[in-house]
Simulated scan of single mutants.
Amino acid sequence: MMTFKQFAGKLETIPASTSWYLADLGEARGRQELYTMLERWAHPLIALAAFNLDFLCIHPFRDGNGRVSRLLLLLQCYHLGYEVGRYISLERLIEENKERYYETLELSSQQWHEGKHDPWHYVNYLLFILKTAYREFESRVGEVKSPRGAKTEMIESAVTSFAGDFTLADLEQKCTHASRDMVRRVLRNLQKAGKVECLGRGPGASWRIKRG
């Protein structure tokens, strides 16, 4: 089995039986301390991907090892604070890129039992999957917009909530998601419609709802 350590600014694979590796693992107390220790050697996502590869190479079950490895991937991502799997299916992305999955797994598992394998094919593949998931999530979030006219309705509702006189600044405090220009535009439209009146001039002027 191989692990990672950083030498002179670059990552290299070394045998996991190395004395300092075993000694440091023995001193680790609890999962969080272990993650902190691993972070000194390599980025946690690299360690996560290497663990996933090791699990697949060990092949502990007669069937279902791939599904279990993906569940472990999801669980470890959650532990490390990468929760994109809650919103974007990593299982689906792996299925959509299954040819690359099998190719990189085959390349990285060669000579695994001798500790002479190259894990980077599979590590880079899993990093690609996570990167794709975050890009898809970002794209979906960007598509979520307020319904047309929602901000106008919010400003109009805020205006009617005032029992007495109010200023532009008072209205802006209630409509933090709308720009000042939009607040002014809605106020002018309400004024033209005869629903509000301005009691002065300038940005500090008071406004009042017309009653009756």
Results as ranks from 00 to 15, higher is better:
L107W: 02
K192L: 15
I129L: 04
D118Q: 10
F51L: 07
I14S: 00
G142D: 13
A49G: 04
K192S: 13
A28D: 12
T36M: 10
R70I: 09
T160D: 10
D63L: 01
H113R: 15
M1Y: 06
E39S: 10
H121F: 14
G115K: 02
R29N: 14
V159S: 13
L53C: 01
K98S: 15
E27W: 00
H59C: 00
R40W: 07
G204T: 15
L22C: 05
L48K: 10
P44H: 03
V196M: 05
Y101G: 01
C198V: 15
L190D: 06
G64K: 12
C198L: 13
Q173L: 13
L130C: 07
E143M: 11
T13C: 13
E143T: 06
I129K: 11
A193F: 05
P15F: 01
A23H: 03
E33L: 04
A23E: 03
Y82D: 12
A133W: 03
E99G: 09
L90R: 09
G26A: 08
G164F: 14
F51K: 08
V196K: 13
L190A: 06
R148E: 10
A150L: 12
Y122I: 02
E156M: 15
I14E: 00
H43Y: 04
W207Q: 01
L73R: 04
V159I: 15
K10C: 01
V196L: 03
C198F: 07
L93M: 10
H59T: 04
G200R: 04
T104G: 03
E172G: 12
G85H: 09
